[in-house]
Amino acid sequence: MDCKGDYILEMLQINNLTKKFGRKNIALDNLSLTIQKGEVFGLLGPNGAGKTTLIRLLIGLIKPTSGTAQIRYNGEYYDIHEDIMKIRERASMLPQEAQVYEQLTARENILYYGQIYGNMTDEEVRNRTEELIDLIGLRGRENDLTKEFSGGMKRKVLVARALVMDPDLVFLDEPTTGIDILGARTVRNIIKKLAKDMHKTIILTTHDLSEVGELCDRVGILVKGKLAAVGTPAELEEKFQKAGLEDVFIGLTTGEGVIEEDFLKQKKKRSLFSRILKRR
């Protein structure tokens, strides 16, 4: 199922998005990107690269310094400057350090968010909550206060909370960070289900390259606010002549590699130079 109601997500388009904090701190520098419907897009980058900033801009938590992003629903564009509430009605975010409300039970946590979203009746919210409790495997613990839960269980509740209104677009900021292997496996399975069975569009930030390989259709590598490279893992490995995505990542982030556009220019220059050399 793609969506509920009238909106069908077609595309997310980011145009020259820039964010500065203060005068000197450029968190995102002229970023442009297109993400297609149903794609699982992975955002890689070292700490401080701008991954979380990008997600916060797209969900409207912070305002861009310049540039824009648009989401196309049913042929119409919704801009992050003017239509952020409309975007939020169809998109959800799971922040990196998100926590549950510990004074509420698992069910209450999910119900609360469903009621805030406001685009479902109370009965629909209740039914959806029960579905999600089964999906995340917390049946039997749904009436317990979440302060008694382990980290992995809390993360499951958070995932369920993010999915309660059946969003088309899901932003997941390091969804498996800080939880155990079993919990991480469960979350990844849920993400796969969202992507493959429910055809959700997912933007996922992570430090775990194996997760990227397992889940993502395409990958973008951010370095110091710039988009250093975009493509499938295989494409990137070929472009940068590296054996694995890890090497691509390290090369780009440590300076051994170059920004893709510059790389292409460099490649062109080298070709010309080598041609001149060859002529000689």
Binding site: I59, G60, L61, M85, K86, R88, E89, S92, M93, L94, P95, E97, A98, Q99, V100, Y101, E102, Y113, I116, Y117, G118, L158, R161, A162
Partner: peptide, 14 residues
Amino acid sequence: EKKTMESLLALPIS
């Protein structure tokens, strides 16, 4: 402090 603010602010509510 409990990191529940960001998720709340990301909802479609002003």
